[in-house]
Design a binder for these strands. Structure first.
Lengths: 229, 229
DNA sequence: CAATCACTGGAACGGTGTTCCATAAAACAG
DNA sequence: CTGTTTTATGGAACACCGTTCCAGTGATTG
């Protein structure tokens, strides 16, 4: 859509002094998203940051969804780049990949809502492949591999997205702990005969570590995979 | 915010002929969302359907997020109402609840994006409690209950939301099967040395039953819970 | 009966994504 | 070197959105 010619003769990529690339635009978008939240990412704000007009951005990017998908893909790809390809044992590798995704979502909570636009992009595919390719070394037979992969990948992205939503609720006034205590308070104030379980586990909420909780779920699924062998 | 007086003396709830209730507004919003998708739910369209002005809606509803959260809550509550409180065995009950949520999301794909607004609402709490209260009868000891509950609930809502996203991509031209075949085609066209796993399981995609796949994940988690006993 | 309350509905406001296009620098053709 | 084409700009304009505001209206109340 953008890079048309550029190819053969020219050693230098940038033609004009004021020209932007799609990568620069996506980078600027991520900067705005991280600093001011998703509501603040507008084409006008982005254009201002890049010292250009809003219309120019559309030369590099199809629309806002495309921009957000590209930003999401960038972050996920970057997260995947940090994990070492074949260092750890398969089981630990799955944990490492899961946590890398979790951490990326936690650091960039705006991804949560945009997940739906990203499948099919390379970052997502990298994660899919990285998880899936660890199953055979783990001893999961051919017939069970798809179910195991599907459960893991769905859990990873589903939980990461939901956690990102929670992280988005934490801003300035409301600390994470205050939020958890508020929820715990609400639950323990529920009718104890109608909601006995929530009433009981409200106590588990304060001081909860989302990351460990996430990992506990991964371990539960891994346990299920092993017990089905 | 709305119902202030109304209480004691008056036998009739509706005072004026043209008056709407919040329930009616939410119902109309759900009708629009189901029929024309989330992009078509605007205050003006909603007002037109209710034969009123956009401003009147704000008497019953704080803002659009509130409206969407109420709509989501309505659908989830309704889904929970269909499952029988203490008919099945605990393990089957968990499956039934999970599938009820899954089906509700599948029937109303717009929920996917709005999930983040709903926690704390009664529909969500019903699901939380329904799942959690089945764990003790299942023999899960106190110390392991929170992890098991967390994994199940996160998986259920995470996967349901992602599946709703897929369902949203199926519209008119693109059937579900055509979509799966397109994805399978993309995966099998990937470089086989870089993406061996995706290349291999692309064949599993066509004819895939999302519901069964979802259930397989639930069973995997349940297996993990049991094997940890 | 007068005052208050519960609610209406349409106009108006600020802001958004997106389109359009006159312009201009770079690349290329001869 | 000269014209033409390609690549990209940046700001104006458009349609539409969520939200606010408020004069008005019918029921309820004291």
């Amino acid at each position: 859509m953008s890079m048309g010619r550029m190819a053969r003769g020219s050693p230098k990529a940038g033609r004009r002094a004021e020209t932007r690339t799609k990568a620069q635009i996506v980078e600027a978008a991520i900067a705005i998203l991280d600093a001011e939240g998703e509501a603040s990412l507008t084409f006008r704000a982005l254009a201002a940051r890049l010292s250009t007009g809003a219309g120019a951005i559309y030369w590099h990017v199809a629309n806002k969804d495309d921009l957000l998908a590209a930003a999401t893909d960038q972050v996920v790809s970057h997260a995947m780049a940090t994990i070492d390809a074949n260092a750890a044992a398969a089981e630990d590798a799955i944990r490492a990949i899961s946590l890398a995704v979790f951490d990326a979502f936690d650091a960039h909570p705006w991804i949560g809502d945009q997940l739906s636009l990203a499948p099919g992009r390379s970052g997502m595919l990298q994660v899919f492949e990285a998880i899936g390719s660890r199953l055979e070394p783990l001893g999961v037979p051919q017939g069970a591999r798809f179910d195991a992969w599907s459960a893991l990948v769905n859990y990873i992205f589903g939980v990461a997205a939901q956690n990102a939503d929670n992280a988005r609720r934490v801003t300035g006034e409301m600390t994470r702990e205050a939020l958890l205590e508020t929820i715990a308070g609400n639950w323990s104030r529920l009718d104890a005969t109608e909601y006995p379980f929530l009433h009981e586990i409200a106590a588990c909420l304060p001081g909860l570590d989302d990351r460990e909780q996430f990992l506990a779920g991964i371990n539960l699924i891994l346990g299920g995979i092993f017990s089905a062998l």
